[in-house]
Structures are given as C-alpha cells and as structure tokens.
Design a protein around this nucleic acid. Sequence first.
DNA 1: TAATGCGCCGTGTGCGCACACGAAAATAAA
DNA 2: TTTATTTTCGTGTGCGCACACGGCGCATTA
Lengths: 358, 358
Amino acid sequence: MSNLSNKIRIIDIARMAGVSPGTVDRVLHNRGEVSEEKRTKILSIIDDIQYQPNILARSLARKKTLRFASLLPEYHPGEYWEAPEKGIDKAQTEIRNYNIVLEKLYYNQFNVQSFVSVSEKLLNTNPDAVLLTPTFRNEAAALMGQLHTRNIPGVYIDSNAEDDYYLSYFGQHSYQSGYAAARLLENGLPHGSEVLIVRTIRTAGASSNQTQRREEGFMAYFQEKNLANKYHFIHVKLSADDHTGNLKEIEKVFKKSPGIRAAIVFNSRVYQLADIFKKLGTTGMKLIGYDLSGDNVSCLKNELVSFLIAQRPEDQGYQGIMALCNRLVFNKEIKRINYMPIDILTRENIDYYVNYID
Amino acid sequence: MSNLSNKIRIIDIARMAGVSPGTVDRVLHNRGEVSEEKRTKILSIIDDIQYQPNILARSLARKKTLRFASLLPEYHPGEYWEAPEKGIDKAQTEIRNYNIVLEKLYYNQFNVQSFVSVSEKLLNTNPDAVLLTPTFRNEAAALMGQLHTRNIPGVYIDSNAEDDYYLSYFGQHSYQSGYAAARLLENGLPHGSEVLIVRTIRTAGASSNQTQRREEGFMAYFQEKNLANKYHFIHVKLSADDHTGNLKEIEKVFKKSPGIRAAIVFNSRVYQLADIFKKLGTTGMKLIGYDLSGDNVSCLKNELVSFLIAQRPEDQGYQGIMALCNRLVFNKEIKRINYMPIDILTRENIDYYVNYID
DNA sequence: TAATGCGCCGTGTGCGCACACGAAAATAAA
DNA sequence: TTTATTTTCGTGTGCGCACACGGCGCATTA
C-alpha cells in the first residue's frame, strides 16, 4: 500500500552504474552525449529501482522559469467567467513555488477578431503552456494547431474544440447535463403540462454548441422515457440584450399557452427569464437554468428559480492549469477528456456550494 | 491582480536589515536569541515586503521528516470509508515530496475499546499531526485534548466532536442536508401522502448524532413551509443487521399505511430499504438516502433510489490532510469549520460524479 | 584579574537537482 | 605521425532555505 520514502538520488544511480551524476542527468533529460552502452545501463537501473526525482529539488534548481498563459473572455464582476479565473488564480499561487509564472490574456467573447488578434499576441510571447476557452471553435482549433507545431501543450476548459492537438479538456458533458435537467423538470410535473424551452441567441445569431447539446440531452430524456407526448413543448428564442422585446415575446406566448408550468433556459441567462416572470406576475412556475452567476444565485434564493445546473467552473480553471503543471513539471500522465460533475443546486444547498469556493 | 514573482529571499531581508541571514532565520522561526531591536526591525521588513518563503527550498532543507497519522474506521471494499481514505491517499502522494510521511491507523467502528487502544498506540508514535473521525465523540475529544497538550495539530473529518482543541473540521452540515433532502422529497409529492422515515439503530443502540441532525433538518423543512400537516410521517426503526426482522417490520407498516409514497433513510443503509421494497414488490416509491456506497449507487442506477445526498468524503480526507500540511509546512491560515457541499445525485448525474474521483 | 556564563550574532554546510564548462577519449583529417 | 574535430564524460556551482557550530562582547562570580 505504501512504500517508504524513495530516497534514491541521482548520485546513487550514478554510483550503481559506475558513471558520474552528470551522465545520469543527461540520460534523464534526453540531452544526448551519452554512449548507447551506458545509456541503456542507466535506463535499466532507473527502471529497476523505480526512480522518482525529487520535484522540489528539481524545481529549485531549474534555471528557466516556465511561463504559462491563459486566454479567457473578458467579463464584468459577478459574471460566469469570474469563476474559472478564480480557479486559475488558485492554481497560480500553488505553482508559483515551482518557478512558474502565469500571464492572463483576455478576448471579447462577442468578437471573433478580438480572439484572433489576442491569439497572435499570445503566440508571440512564446509561452511554455496555454489554457484557453474555445468560444470560437475554429479559431481556437487553429491556435491549438499552432501551439502543437511549436510543441507547446494546450488545454481547453468550458467547451471543447475537438481538434487533434489539445493535451486535455475540462468541462461538462453538455448532453448529459441536459438529460439530468430534464429529470428534475419532469419530476412531479403533471402530465399534460406545457413546458417552455428558451434559447438565447448570441449577437452572432447562432446559439452555442454547448447549449445545443444540452437541449438535445433534455429532449432525449423525454423520448427515451416515452414521455414526449405527455407534455407539450414550446420553443422560444430570446435576444441576449433586447429585454423589452423579450418581455413582449413571453407575454404573447403565455397568452397562447396558459398551461405552462415549467421552463428551462440552457445557459446562464435564466435570471432574465425569471425577471420577466416576475414582471408578468407568473407564479408557481418550475424554472431551471445553468451556472452560478450572481444574478442566478439570487433568483435561486428568492425561489424564482427552482434548480441551477452547475459545472464547477473554478475546478475547470484550477485543474486545467494543474494539468499543464503535471505535464511539464511532474511528468505525470494526463487524462485527455475530463467531464466535470453535473451539480444540482437548489435554494437549500446553494450556500454550502458557493461558500466552498474560496 | 497579480504581482510578479516575489523573488525576495532571506538574504535580501538580511541585507535590508543590516544583519546576517541566520538572524533573519531565527526571527522567522521564533527561535529567539535575537535582540528585541533587530527582531522588530526584521519583522517590519518582512511585513512590508510581504515575504513569502520558498516552500520548495524550505522543504528541501528541512532535516526532519514530518510524520502525519490518520485514524479511520476499518472497512470492507465498497463501503463508505473507502472514500475518505482515497482522498487521504491522494494527499499523501502530493505531499510526499515535502518530506512528509503518513501512517494510517484503523479502529473498529463498533467497538469503543478498539478506538481507545489505537488512540494510545497513536500517541506513542508521537506524530507531528493527526487526522481522525470522531465516531466516538467523547473518546475522540479526549484524544484531541491529549494531542493539544503535546502541541500536535489534529483535524476531524466526517463529523465533529466539537471540543475546543481541534485545528479544523471537514464535513457536512447535517441539519442543512436533511433540509435539502426534504425539499427533494416534497417536490411533486401529492398532499396527503404518507412518508416513511427510517432510522437505523447501531449495535450500541443509539443513532448517531449526525443522523439525528439530518432528521431534524428534514422535519424543519416541513414545519417552516407549513407543510407538516399536509403529509403523514411514519417513523420506523430498523436494525443494522437483522434483515428478516426488518422485512417483516416494513411489511407490517405497509399493511397499516398503504398510502406511503416516499421514504427517507438518514444514513448509507438506504440500499437495505430498497432491497426490502423490491422484495415486497413496492413500486412508484420515491426513496432518498445518503452517501455513495457501492450498493447505494447500484440502487440509484436501477431507479430503486431516487436521490442520494453526498458529502464529498474524498475531499474531506484530502483537504483534512492538506490542512495539516498547510499548517505545518506552508504556514497558512486554516479555516476551522469547513462544511462540504451538499451534493444531490440522481441516476442521470451519478456517472460523472463517481468517475470524477480518481 | 582571570575565569565562567550567557545573550546575541555570523558563517558554513548540505538538501537533490539542473546546467555550464571544460577535459578526456575517440575519431577524422592533415 | 600530428593536428583538428567530434563524441563522451566528470566536476563545479548555485537554487533558497534550515540548522549546527562557533565566536564575540558583556556581565557575573571566584
């Protein structure tokens, strides 16, 4: 279960192999300049004794400071993107001791060109490792390809551009989270109820890949359970900024379909719908949304929202950075796809969830 | 937002104060033998420049290997206590580089005397830090007192003996978790339904403090929402081992109260009740329980159990050890009471929760 | 006055490793 | 054979810190 402290040092290996520490060092770092004969001998010894380098000494002695970079959307306080950055900051303080610095870059999530230009800037700094969010899939994949040719490891968080070159991905299984949301919504909902399904349209005009997958998972639940014909689903598209227009739209929908008992929004803007419900005086509505922005948490506490589905964004940021560190410093194996837990938050458990993050 | 790498070393402080590195070292470690004048001067400089020691160098140079000890219940594979130990193991591999070893001790959770004797053994090894679970509150508190007199920091996980001497506690807010469970149970449950509330009695005869608190929180929900009279609550006590007796007992209850639509068990033995329901052919029952033992997870996946409330036991173990490390190695401030998130698990999100732990 | 003790302080060493430098050995070119 | 070149290897230094040791100056005692 536990082997005692592996106190075998480079110099011990050197003695066993009848060479100098420098030679062992060259083998360990693949720096060449070692005869094949000694090389294989040293390698076999290393393998035999299961040599584990002392990471502390290694980092302390390393001349080069590793430079990590992150590339995230700009945000206002209280918005979703604050969370991953929090995790990144936490990781940063932990790895600073290992002679690693982190430079944070930001792009405008509503402007592709912004992402591209910051990408170039990032490449020019020639970092040792990169963490980014592929809001713009193609452009992100292009960047990842560039990084790959330069042998710079990169990780995605939040969503996945699904190219061939990223080291690791940390994010939610969107489909399954929609499936889980469906279960919560359906539970206790009388058959025959009408269900409002809201999509928020980005300025660009299309909804994100992530929200699409969530909706697919959501609908799949009802299909698989043969419940699709027990409820009536009403799909509505809302604008990201035209609040009065949205209000009117929802009002119209309610006039047509007064039997609506539940609603779901597949992104973090559920608080906007809650606001509309409040203005319209709608009560007794089961409302489900995603992610813990400040507004969403308020709605949950006021019981305007019944459930929020969360995806541990802080963990995504933290683990993303740590994966890079594990790769470059600790030489550990990195799991490529890492789905985060699908967390279910209610008014009753939210306090112990948000306070848990520090 | 981010200050660059604090490259200020002890020798820099020494120069600023016009003393030698050794003197600064004495101040940093409160070893005395420094004049009050220089002491205050050095301290003010340290404060000014926000000196952060290089943990790597510190651990590398430290002569003494720190010895941590854990004291957990014995368990069989798949049982609850496997989880905290997993977290402890994870922490162990992380801190091994810091010149720390961990010795794991176990007691029989159904035998006070076992706990006491292992406690003594633990004290005799004279560890530098201790993590333990206070299954036996008084005896655990006594041990913690002993540790305190020897100036050995100790943390509790799982539950809290609530003495004055522990450094830190990691566990669930039992009351609130019961409250959250009530919400899940009540949601969609027709008024007038009967609700079965099960207590499992330990060999000792009493139910644990933790389960009592959970039940309090559970009942409080209905009181606060003025729902207490909308449902009929049926309290049943089951034995921890007499399965046939339990079966008969539940059968009797159902005969008397055929309107039971939901049930809750306040500990990890919900799978036993699910088993009874299965044998009795009971269907359409909403069943809620606690913790992710292998059996419970199976029940959740088979839809015999609707919800499981979990408390991140791996995190408790991991963070408990890390707290000790933060205290002794990193000199960080430790939060004393740390409530874990109240996680809600369903068939739909369980996979991404359990796989998340590696 | 010399001897002893104590408070205070500086210096030296080594933790395990990365990396630069230069030397030796082997080989190629003259 | 001599010289130049390449391959292969050993040694030395320092990363930032903890800690042991010894020394200086001053007060106390014999």
